[in-house]
Amino acid sequence: MKFSEIEPGTWEELRPYLDTCLIPVTGLTGTEQPYEVVEALEKLRDVMDWVEVPFHGRVVTYPSFQYGEGEMMPHINEVCRRLKRSGFAYAIVISDRLELRREQLPDADLLITPALFLPTEGKLSKQRVMEEVQLLWQEGSK
């Protein structure tokens, strides 16, 4: 569910079910040509769909961080911390271009990066991403 789809009057009713926020990171540098920006946004959208579609009703997608690389990581981490303080149980950061590192984003509960998209042990990328999200929820409920 996109943040813009939630009406003020329904948030308190939906809040117990929507416990996970997704924070997309485009990772643009400003050197891309317009067609490259379109390609980057479409690819990130496709990866976001791997989480948004099967887990609709449990995740809320927040606006994306568009420009920057390493220098924006402290800001993304602070957003994760604040969102969790505001009531979300989990913060997932997703980028299809940047290899995010745990030490950069300690307040993120899951980092979905290109390393998760590569087939491992015969598993499709989409399946692997879905399994990681489910594992996060299973481990978090213990």
Rank of each mutant, 00 (worst) to 15 (best):
C80N: 02
I23D: 02
L118N: 01
E99D: 10
Q138H: 10
E5C: 01
V38M: 00
V129E: 04
L135S: 11
R45S: 13
C80V: 11
G68C: 09
D46S: 11
L124I: 02
V38H: 04
L118R: 15
W137V: 06
D46L: 00
M73V: 07
L118Q: 13
Q66D: 10
L118A: 14
M1E: 01
M48L: 15
A40L: 10
L98Y: 06
P74I: 12
G57D: 08
I94E: 03
F3P: 00
C21N: 04
S64M: 10
L14T: 06
E5W: 04
D46W: 09
K126P: 00
S86L: 03
R101M: 07
K2N: 11
R58C: 07
P119F: 00
K142V: 08
G68W: 03
G57H: 09
S95M: 04
S4T: 14
S141H: 15
E52S: 08
L124S: 08
A108S: 12
V25F: 12
A40G: 00
R81P: 00
M73L: 15
Y67W: 13
N77A: 07
A108N: 14
Y35W: 15
G57Y: 07
V47W: 03
I92G: 03
T61V: 07
G87V: 07
V25N: 03
P24V: 03
T26R: 04
E132S: 09
R15D: 02
A89P: 00
G68P: 11
Q138V: 06
Q104T: 05
E5P: 02
A115C: 10
R15G: 00
R58Q: 14
L98F: 05
D19P: 04
G70R: 15
A40H: 01
Q127P: 00
G122T: 02
T61H: 00
R97M: 06
E36H: 09
V93M: 03
P34R: 10
C21Y: 01
T61N: 02
I94W: 03
E121D: 08
L124R: 10
K123V: 03
D49L: 10
L14N: 11
Y35N: 08
M1H: 10
V37D: 02
F3C: 05
G9I: 11
G30H: 07
W11A: 13
R82A: 11
L110V: 12
E69Q: 14
K142C: 03
M72E: 11
E103W: 14
S125R: 09
K126D: 01
L116V: 01
G122V: 04
A115Y: 11
T29C: 01
P74H: 06
E69T: 14
E7P: 00
I92L: 06
D46R: 11
Q33E: 15
Q33V: 12
L135Y: 02
R97I: 04
I6W: 13
P24W: 06
M73R: 14
G57F: 03
E103D: 15
E5Y: 11
A89T: 13
E103Q: 08
Q104P: 08
I94V: 14
